[in-house]
């Protein structure tokens, strides 16, 4: 059996398998540095970190109508006022890493998903288990080595839209004054 035939046989055996139990599908697309190259290709930027006060978090939550989970805002900043914020939102069950570019007026220049994660499996059918799991991450098999694309799943991006809205309000309330 030559290698090509072996690979084909192996693929045929693998395909058709059902991966039971709870599994995380995770796929990394870009690093933060690559996202910076895409969103702000010719802009010199330095790393920044801003810690939000409780009052600021409350203001942002009230203005954006979105929960503020993390009090630390990180990313890159240019002297000319451009920002690249590296942020996380919770998708259906798992964290999704984002890079959001804001221009000097706080307008969104570009958004790139850095890492997408989602859970599938029997346990997700159980709402109590799901509730317990949400936002805590998972130490389970990462599938992106085996499966690069998933079909038949609902993949609403509402959480990302909410996250971007929260970050534009974070600029409005805090970052533009830094």
């Amino acid at each position: 059996m030559n290698r090509r035939h072996f690979n084909r046989q192996a693929m045929l055996i693998t395909a058709g398998l059902v991966l039971g139990g709870q599994k995380v599908f995770a796929k990394t697309f870009l690093s933060a540095a690559q996202a910076k190259q895409i969103i702000w290709p010719d802009v010199l930027m330095e790393a920044f970190e801003v810690t939000l006060s409780k009052a600021q978090m409350k203001e942002i939550k009230s203005a954006s109508r979105t929960r503020v989970r993390n009090n630390v805002i990180k990313g890159f900043k240019a002297e000319s006022g451009e920002w690249l914020i590296i942020d996380q939102v919770i998708g259906k069950h798992e964290f999704i890493d984002l890079a959001v570019g804001l221009d000097a007026k706080g307008k969104v220049k570009g958004v790139e998903v850095l890492t997408y994660r989602e859970s599938y499996g029997d346990e997700i059918m159980n709402p109590k288990w799901r509730e317990q799991f949400t936002g805590r991450g998972a130490e389970v098999l990462v599938l992106d080595q085996h499966i690069k694309n998933i079909s038949g799943a609902t993949m609403s991006c509402r959480h990302v839209t909410d996250g971007i809205n929260r970050l534009t309000h974070t600029w409005e309330q805090v970052l533009q004054h830094v």
Binding site: N7, L19, I150, S151, A153
Partner: peptide, 18 residues
């Protein structure tokens, strides 16, 4: 050619299809 896709089945498990 020789690509697979993961399909989320009725039990929410991922099933691999050619």
């Amino acid at each position: 050619h020789q690509q697979v896709v993961g399909v989320v089945n009725r039990c929410q498990n991922v099933e691999m299809l050619h």
